[in-house]
C-alpha cells in the first residue's frame, strides 16, 4: 500500500511487545554486539587514543607514546584547514550534481518506465553496470580521457574553449566530476526505490487541486520522495567527504585539490605522523556526524537512521 511508506514516520511504534526485553533477544544479538565491539568499538577507541599521542622523546620518526596531547587537534586544524574545507566543499558539490543528474534518471526509471518493466530492468542494470568494473580502473579511465593529450582536451583547446596552457586533470572540476560520476549509482538507487513506490494518484490529486505540474512536483513529488533524497545524499556525501582516490595525484586530483582523505593517507603511510592522521580522522567523523544529524533532523526523516 502506498501509505505504508510513510506510516512509520507519522505514527511511532508503541507496540509493547517490541519494548519488552527478553533474554532470547539479547542472546540473538550477541554475535552482532561482539562483531561491533571487535571491529568498530575497539578500532575507534584505539584511534581516539592515538589522536592524543605525543612524540617519543629522542625517539625515531613514527615513534609515539600515549599521552593527552590535545594540541594535536589544534595543529592539524591550523595546518590542514584548507583540506578540511575542500573536502566538505567538494563532497557537497558532488552530492548536488549527483542529485541533479540522478533525480530525473530515477524518476524516469521509477515512474515513467513503469509501463515497460523490461525497459525498467534494463535501465537499472545500466545504472549498476559500472560496479562490474573496479572503481580504480574507471577513475583511471577518466584520467586518460581528461589528460592533456586526450581527444577531449585537444578538441576543447582547438575550439578555444580551453586556453592553450589549461589542464583538466588536477583541477577542482575533475575531482568533483570524478566524485559525482563514482557516486551516481549510490544516489540513483535509493531515489529509484522511493520513486518506484510513488503513488501517482497523489499527483493527480494535486493537479485536480489547481497545482500546475511544477507546483505538484515541488509540493507533492519532492516531499514524497524525501526518504530517497535523504538516503541518496547521505550515501553520496559521507563517502565523498572521506574519499582519497578521486582527489589523489595519481588519479584526477593535483596538489591544489587534496582532500582530507589524502592528508590522512599521507600522514599515516608516508609521514608516519599517526596522531595527526588519527586526529584528522576523528575530526572528519565528528563533522560528518554533526552535519548528517542536523540534515536528517531538518528533513524530518529520522526513521532512516
Amino acid at each position: 500500500m502506498a501509505f505504508a511508506a510513510f506510516s512509520s514516520q507519522a505514527a511511532p511504534s508503541t507496540d509493547p511487545v517490541a519494548r519488552r526485553r527478553s533474554p532470547v533477544a539479547l542472546f540473538l544479538l550477541l554475535p552482532g554486539i561482539l562483531y561491533l565491539v571487535l571491529f568498530f568499538l575497539t578500532p575507534l577507541v584505539s584511534l581516539l587514543l592515538t589522536s592524543f599521542q605525543a612524540p617519543r622523546e629522542f625517539g625515531d620518526i613514527g615513534q609515539f607514546d600515549y599521552a593527552f596531547r590535545w594540541q594535536n587537534y589544534v595543529e592539524v586544524v591550523t595546518t590542514y584547514w584548507p583540506h578540511i574545507a575542500r573536502s566538505f566543499g567538494y563532497a557537497l558539490a558532488a552530492t548536488f550534481f549527483a542529485l541533479l543528474i540522478s533525480y530525473p534518471l530515477a524518476y524516469f526509471i521509477g515512474v515513467k518506465a513503469r509501463r515497460w518493466p523490461l525497459l525498467q530492468s534494463l535501465m537499472l542494470v545500466l545504472v549498476i553496470a559500472p560496479f562490474f568494473i573496479s572503481f580504480l580502473l574507471r577513475t583511471l579511465a577518466w584520467k586518460q580521457l581528461f589528460s592533456d593529450e586526450s581527444f577531449v582536451v585537444q578538441s576543447l583547446k582547438a575550439l578555444s574553449l580551453l586556453g592553450p596552457e589549461a589542464h583538466v586533470t588536477g583541477t577542482a572540476f575533475s575531482v568533483i566530476f570524478g566524485l559525482t560520476y563514482n557516486f551516481i549509482p549510490f544516489m540513483t538507487l535509493p531515489l529509484y526505490t522511493t520513486l518506484e513506490r510513488l503513488d501517482l494518484r497523489y499527483l493527480e490529486a494535486g493537479n485536480d487541486l489547481y497545482a500546475s505540474p511544477f507546483h505538484v512536483f515541488r509540493k507533492v513529488t519532492i516531499p514524497l520522495s524525501m526518504p530517497g533524497i535523504v538516503a541518496g545524499t547521505l550515501l553520496t556525501f559521507i563517502p565523498a567527504a572521506g574519499d582519497y582516490i578521486n582527489a589523489s595525484r595519481d588519479f584526477l586530483g593535483g596538489t591544489g585539490t587534496q582532500m582530507m582523505g589524502n592528508v590522512i593517507e599521507a600522514n599515516f603511510l608516508v609521514l608516519q605522523n599517526f596522531p595527526a592522521a588519527a586526529a584528522l580522522s576523528i575530526i572528519l567523523m565528528t563533522v560528518i556526524l554533526v552535519i548528517v544529524s542536523i540534515y536528517v533532523k531538518r528533513s524530518g526523516t529520522e526513521d532512516l537512521l
Binding site: D199, E204, N207, D208, L209, V220, P223
Partner: peptide
C-alpha cells in the same frame, strides 16, 4: 484545458490525501 486549470474538484475513490 489541463486538469489544474479546470473549475472542477474530485473526491477520489482512494481519497488520495497527501500523506506528508
Amino acid at each position: 484545458q489541463k486538469s489544474f486549470q479546470r473549475p472542477v474538484n474530485t473526491v477520489f475513490q482512494s481519497y488520495a490525501l497527501f500523506p506528508h
